[in-house]
Design a protein around this nucleic acid. Sequence first.
DNA 1: CGCATATTTCAACAAGCGTTGAAATTTAAA
DNA 2: TTTAAATTTCAACGCTTGTTGAAATATGCG
Lengths: 218, 218
Amino acid sequence: MKNPRSLSKRERILDVAEELFALHGYDGVTLRQIAKGAGVDVALASYHFGKKLDLFNAVFQRRAALLNSARLDALRACQQSAGNEGPSVEQIIEAFLRPLELAQETGDPGWQHYLALIAYINNSPYWGPRMMSKLFDGLVSEFIDALRKALPDARDEDIYWCYHNLSGALTLTLAQTGRIDKLSGGKCRSADFEAAYNHMIPFVAAGFRQVCGKETTT
Amino acid sequence: MKNPRSLSKRERILDVAEELFALHGYDGVTLRQIAKGAGVDVALASYHFGKKLDLFNAVFQRRAALLNSARLDALRACQQSAGNEGPSVEQIIEAFLRPLELAQETGDPGWQHYLALIAYINNSPYWGPRMMSKLFDGLVSEFIDALRKALPDARDEDIYWCYHNLSGALTLTLAQTGRIDKLSGGKCRSADFEAAYNHMIPFVAAGFRQVCGKETTT
DNA sequence: CGCATATTTCAACAAGCGTTGAAATTTAAA
DNA sequence: TTTAAATTTCAACGCTTGTTGAAATATGCG
């Protein structure tokens, strides 16, 4: 009985945990809330995942590999199509951001909750260092290498600070706080990731060029 | 006995609460931890502030007015010195960011914790809409008005998205997660706000110009 | 000092927490 | 159908939580 159709309840626990953790953070959610949301007994979460922290990690890990490979594929693709001069800053940033749109493309609301959870973790002084590095530093280093090639005159320090700005803008987007909706009087919608990226890509690319000097490619 | 020298313990509770809330979030901190950190009985927090949520709000409000007026003063100052063409994008962003350096200038570590708390709240889908708007929307609107004048060709929508990018980059900086320290191999330090702003200002200004069209002023 | 008020502690409460062992149920193969 | 394993629930545990009323202490005024 390795894998019967018990996926249902186990998966439902992950889905509810994902949504609640993204909204209220690790300490703001109880196992009983998760169980109630999933229509399941409290003890079932422990049976499937162990401690509360293990469940948190399971939620975090569930979509990590898929997300990482989607972004890495996008980077490889734009590198391939760019010849030996390498891709432009815009193309690299596009590869970094566009795969995140699978959150709406798949129609799975879980992806949106997951990205909000990433934002929560990335912005947390406690969880950030504990969880982000192990899973995302490899990917980020690849993108930074690509940016270094596209900006050969740049000092390393400047590239990292620029990436930091990119990461912050992205993080606030993923967090979905809805603040821009109110500020703009409805002209902008937090949920419109495509509009967010359409503005973020030229914005960030111009910032990189300003701080990190001119490019070699086009 | 309106105001004897009881400021000591009351203030210590606020200081400890500020630091712990910034690090672990609202639900990640107990009143007993705060009391223990302040060297005080649990009940004292309730006596001075009421419910836990009231203490949270008190921490949030304590420095809000001072911070807001410092930033507003900086905006007024750069508007005054800029003649009737108005200040440039750089000058406006500088006025938005530089006052935050009082966190290190005053030598009061509480300011750093406070700014990290702002970052936590601003990035939270739960607290963001509940707390940021009432206190900061007025200030933000003033800065956006100034940016609109400096970028007369821009569509409103574009300005708000660009501000969103600025806000995100700033938020991640204030959160002090230390991720950039590790990623850069020590070349960049999260605690070095001056370096962060020195990179953020030209980065963001270039982004605004790219997305929002050319300026009228110099 | 003596007194009133503000501050602080003490002690306890009801409720909710994560976790666990054992019982009940479902499942899949024989 | 029988059987054994996987899944799910039940019931309870020891502990911590936020909050509160009463007691104790400190403070400042006349």
